[in-house]
């Protein structure tokens, strides 16, 4: 099980969450002061990430077969970059990070280590 409290320690973390294959939110933590975020927003965000991971998987499949350039498939994570915050997912786990403070590489490493429930 992903340790959401530990993910919330990532630089700039505003929320950490897990979701199922359909994109339904399972567990979540929201950092103090993360205005505008609630379970409804996170649930929609999870659906968005699952949908785009599926699209990216199709693209990676097509791209690799067509170009022979392997290394995209299977898609490990999808990230959405918003105006001030980003949402990164890996497997069934994700975080919302403030763009100005985010360390995306560290976040992906942390998610990869904890991402699969």
């Amino acid at each position: 099980m992903a340790d959401l409290d530990a993910l919330l320690e990532l630089p700039g973390a505003r929320a950490a969450f897990t979701f199922n294959d359909r994109g339904e939110l399972r567990e979540h933590r929201i950092a103090e002061g993360a205005e505008g975020l609630d379970a409804t927003v996170l649930d929609l965000l999870c659906h968005m990430c699952v949908a785009n991971t599926a699209i990216a998987t199709m693209q990676a499949r097509g791209w690799e077969r067509m170009t022979g350039m392997e290394g995209f498939y299977p898609i490990e994570g999808f990230g959405f970059v918003g105006l001030e915050w980003s949402a990164l997912t890996h497997g069934h786990c994700g975080v919302v990070l403030a763009n100005d403070e985010a360390d995306y590489e560290a976040a992906y490493r942390a998610l990869a280590a904890r991402g699969e429930p």
């Binding site: 699209i55 199709m58 693209q59 097509g62 077969r65 067509m66």
Partner: peptide
Amino acid sequence: GNADQLSMF
């Protein structure tokens, strides 16, 4: 966009 990709792939 998705139709363009389907066509391409």
